[in-house]
Design a protein around this nucleic acid. Sequence first.
DNA 1: ATAGGGTTAG
Length: 564
Amino acid sequence: MKKHYNTILSLLESCKTFGQLKQIHGLTITTTVVKNIIPLSRLIDFCTTAESRNLSYAKLVFSQIDQPSVYIWNCMIRGYSGGDKPYEALILCREMQRRGHMPDNFTFPFVLKACSICCDPDCGRCVHNCIVKTGFEVDVYASTGLLNMYASCGYMELAHKVFDEIPKWNVVAWTSLIAGLVNSNQASEAITVFKEMMHWNVEPNEITMVNVMVSCARTRDIETGKWAHNHIRQLGFDPFVSPVRFNVILATAILDMYAKCGSLKTARDLFDRMPLRNLVAWNSLIAAYSQYGRAKEALGLFFDMKTAGLEPDKATFLSIFDACATSGALALGQALHACVIKASIHEDTATGTALLDMYAKMGDLTSAQQVFNEVKNKDVMAWTSMIIGLAMHGRGEEALVIFKRMQETGTVIPDQITYIGVLCACSHLGLVEEGQRQFNSMTDVCGIVPTVEHYGCMVDLLSRAGRLEEAERFLEKMPAEPSVAIWGALLNGCEIYENVALADRLRSQMTELKQAFGSGVYVLLSNIYARAGRWEAVNLSRDLMKHKRVPKTLGCSSVETNFD
DNA sequence: ATAGGGTTAG
């Protein structure tokens, strides 16, 4: 009996595969070792660790144990918290308490992980209370778990509070806080926290630096990014210097930092030096080429990727559809549309949106609408892309119909971009009252603070309709300096409706500004004065250019070019 | 005997 017991324990020790485990389990039954808690614990441990997880088998063994120890409960909870049914971990934890076992310092990290994955901060709060009640709030693992739980549920104030109460901040606690800030779109705060961590002389590790790189990428802070890269080198784990144990995630994060900040040459160089490139690395560089207007190179890299044997995923398609749109590669776009359908991701919200956006930009609104109709869960961006696509192509009525349908869903709330499309549609249709109504409900009902673009749309709308005084009033209300396009829209109205007095006022206002104006504005002004026979004023308008030493090339608008 | 933080996208 004792001999069997020891044999089984040593067999379990060296057990590598699930097949072996089942044999050993059989052995415990035939040798009646089965009731002994230690081999059972080992069995459960094996079935609940990440590499060899088999939860149904673990559950089977578990159900045959009369009095599971806390260790066994913990293993089961660990297994579920890392599996595809994390809420089962929460149920098990409750069951464990019902059967008279209090969770311990090992239980909490697992349960909190389950709360994070389930995004269940209410449950997380209960666990928090339990941690306080059982006196484990001083445990660094429990606190870090809490910190992560709050951060991943978006409760950064609570995460901060937990962090502040940790007695001694180690690198993991700092990194958790940094990661939490990154995940809740507070990348610049993450950098601040990182600098504070350095101030406390806590040495960052690779995971810290991944988060720092992501923060620099998101904030386009290449200065800190370069500094951090250099620091990684000094710490001796720059994957591009010592690729012995190449950390592909850190390498990709560094690559992406340079890529997002527009240092495409450096990014490309690093990419070429990577001994191992995963899909994320390819996607990062493809996205950068696409976003920095180098569509041809994005497409080239995409084909290289296919040659290298990698299959594009959603992220790849997003960049590629954009690149197709800007380079006018309709045939390729259509072929990839077929690929997307084959991979059955055409119903995916982001993919569908990128696809419809591509068709809309190329003027194929029929296809754009078809794609739009097939998108399963249309979010704001899907609706907005469709609205802007229609508005851009002079199909304002349909744009407004789509907007109405969007409001009727009652679940999708328009954002500031949606309203740009809506106001643009009104402007092209000459629907002054409708445009004003929409502008008001945007601010009053939706609480959106209008940006320069929104005011620009209103100025454009009113100018086209000849309601120049109202347009001027909008100009005065603008939160920032009007863009060239807005001055242009108003001057355009002055020209059409022959309002020289307003043109005069605008000219003197514009002369006061530091901003540069292109020859378009000058031409407009000159025309207005010339038509009114005010030849002496034509020279005044020329001052607008002379003073600011503006090159005679046209500074065209963002508002106009995007939507006309 | 069990534990915490990581890369790409509109």
